[in-house]
């Protein structure tokens, strides 16, 4: 074991972690926002809203993420004539893809809010949009926080797939260092440790939120 190879290249590798975190943050925020819109559309009674949403969700849930990344990276230039840079292509792929998963989480959250709340809001004159915004979604988000955190952790791990289009995020940089130093065992163990620590922290944060929710319901 030569741990010095890790310390020697730590700066370079952890620099990639910054990119990884950026990508994960964009994927989670964008995916959740777009996913919420999809979920609301999917639950709409207007079939011109719900049918495309259902199709979108099933379509992307039926594809491997890596394929979507390739598609966006290689097909966008063909369609638009403009090449996307690696980061933009990766971020966009994640938002487009993860939104389909978030949509299902949000849908379950919305459906967990009792029907009577809808009745009460509508009876008080709220429009469907106001009802969603002020009454249903705040309660839904509360119920689905644990699932969102779990999925956010999964997304964080999945960002490593962006290396396939050459984005120099954390794992890609570890990979580059290994090519130079030929120290696979130490380097990939280090990479594993970093991912594990960050994901464990995320999961613990999720547990804490869940715990707080139970506390909140207790009184």
């Amino acid at each position: 074991m030569d741990l010095e190879v890790v310390t020697r290249n730590a700066g370079f590798m952890l620099g990639g972690l910054y990119l990884t975190c950026q990508l994960a943050a964009l994927a989670i925020a964008g995916g959740l926002a777009w996913g919420t819109i999809l979920a609301v559309a999917r639950l709409s009674r207007q079939c011109w809203l719900s049918l495309p949403a259902v199709a979108y969700i099933h379509f992307f849930r039926g594809l491997p993420l890596i394929l979507v990344i390739f598609w966006l990276y290689f097909l966008t230039p063909v369609i638009t004539g403009q090449k996307l840079n690696e980061f933009a292509a990766a971020a966009l792929s994640f938002v487009v893809y993860e939104a389909a998963y978030f949509a299902e989480i949000v849908r379950a959250g919305i459906q967990s809010v009792p029907k009577g709340q809808t009745m009460a809001g509508l009876a008080a004159g709220l429009t469907a949009f106001q009802l969603m915004r002020h009454v249903i979604l705040p309660q839904a988000v509360r119920n689905m926080r644990p699932s969102i955190v779990t999925h956010a952790v999964v997304i964080f791990q999945d960002t490593s797939l962006a290396y396939v289009i050459g984005l120099r995020e954390f794992l890609r940089r570890v990979n580059l260092v290994d090519a130079r130093e030929a120290r696979s065992v130490e380097l990939y163990l280090f990479a594993g440790l970093v991912y594990f620590c960050l994901c464990a922290a995320g999961t613990m944060a999720g547990r804490y939120l869940e715990y707080r929710r139970f506390q909140g319901e207790a009184h």
């Binding site: 009577g116 709340q117 009745m119 009460a120 809001g121 509508l122 009876a123 008080a124 004159g125 709220l126 429009t127 002020h134 009454v135 705040p138 309660q139 509360r142």
Partner: peptide, 20 residues
């Protein structure tokens, strides 16, 4: 219909206050 409903108050069996 929203305007009509705004002029009609309704009270439910299970209260239906917004818990949040």
């Amino acid at each position: 219909i929203h305007r009509v409903r705004a002029g009609i108050g309704m009270v439910f069996q299970h209260f239906e206050l917004y818990p949040h």
